[in-house]
Write a protein that binds this DNA or RNA. Structure first.
Length: 214
DNA sequence: GCAACGAATCGGTGTTGACG
DNA sequence: CGTCAACACCGATTCGTTGC
């Protein structure tokens, strides 16, 4: 949780745990998050999907960003719902039609169809939407897509802390796990009262601990 | 003595394979 | 399952040289 949720390095966490009397090495931290992260993520996603299936009025924000791995450019995609919660993220190698097509399909399959899809004005976004039969429901706009772009910020900060991602595989995995864990813990922090926020946080933590036990 | 600028070095990252 | 030592890599910093 520490590694995925906060922009800390593996060695930072080693020291943090040491302070609390847990003696493990940073390689072990890495092993842990790579092994258990995806498990937690899929559990969280499952629960969210069940909870929200009854309310299909979704507005999705779709966005992508760039980053480099060993000098090569990659473009992670990310889908954010109308509340700013991250639904899904995946990494594509190129910024073309095929990539833009694969991603929404995958997310839809997992979360059900959305009513409105908000993207940026990329041309490669328009073509695939036609293929899915989504033309009517796609909205593009200069400022409409802020939700998705904002969630990139966290990713950037993370990338900075760990001084870039090394491998495609770990980036992909981190993106998926980070999305699930983050949205699990951050539910509209600024929009609800302090008291409500505390209740939500306690609930999220309790649920997390339940997952740990399981 | 000073400024400019490229080369070398340092500090910190995730990753890897040998090993127990 | 976990540690250890080593690795490649990168940005920031320091060093060394050059020109004036």
């Amino acid at each position: 949780m520490l590694y995925v949720r906060f922009p800390l390095s593996l060695r930072n966490i080693e020291d943090l745990l040491h302070e609390r009397g847990v003696d493990v090495s940073h390689e072990t931290i890495r092993f842990w998050w790579q092994k258990f992260g995806p498990m937690f993520a899929s559990e969280i996603r499952k629960k969210r999907a069940n909870r929200l299936r009854s309310w299909p009025q979704w507005r999705w924000h779709l966005g992508e960003m760039f980053l480099k791995i060993n000098g090569e450019r990659h473009s992670p995609w990310r889908a954010v719902d109308h509340q700013g919660e991250v639904l899904e993220s995946c990494v594509a190698k190129t910024r073309d039609k095929k990539a833009a097509l694969k991603f929404p399909r995958k997310s839809m399959k997992r979360h059900g169809r959305s009513h409105v899809l908000v993207t940026d004005r990329l041309r490669s976004c328009g073509a695939p939407m036609k293929d899915i039969g989504n033309t009517r429901r796609q909205e593009t706009g200069r400022w409409l897509n802020n939700r998705a772009e904002n969630s990139h910020l966290l990713f950037r900060r993370r990338e900075r802390a760990m001084q870039r991602f090394r491998r495609m595989r770990s980036l992909q995995m981190f993106a998926a796990v980070h999305a699930a864990v983050f949205s699990h813990f951050n539910s509209e922090r600024s929009l609800t009262s302090r008291q409500n926020f505390k209740l939500n946080r306690a609930a999220a933590l309790a649920e997390w601990r339940q997952l740990c036990v399981a």
